[in-house]
């Protein structure tokens, strides 16, 4: 997947787990939690959806690496290439 495709995959997941949020102006460099009303349950949703949709298993120690869109795309790239 290209970076743009990975980004869109994450956007799709976010729009499912947080359907009331406007994701059109998401700042890729800023933390998700500063822009979206996400709590720990939502973060676990992101992890679960990545596992379900792309068979990506993210160890708990790496959850913190998915704090921004840019970091998430960077983290996922080797798993989704």
């Amino acid at each position: 997947m290209t970076n743009e495709e990975i980004r869109q995959a994450v956007i799709d997941i976010l729009s499912d787990i947080s359907p009331d949020e406007d994701l059109s102006n998401l700042d890729d460099a800023a933390p998700f939690r500063d822009q979206l009303q996400l709590d720990s349950m939502d973060v676990m949703d992101i992890i679960l959806e990545l596992r379900k949709r792309y068979r990506v298993n993210i160890p708990e120690d790496d959850y913190g690496k998915l704090d921004t869109m840019a970091h998430t795309v960077e983290y996922l790239k080797p798993h989704l290439s």
Binding site: M41, M44, D45, R51, N57
Partner: peptide, 12 residues
């Protein structure tokens, strides 16, 4: 849908 793998069980 995932061969009954409990890793796919939801935290909800």
């Amino acid at each position: 849908q995932f061969n009954y793998d409990c890793k796919y069980w939801s935290h909800h």
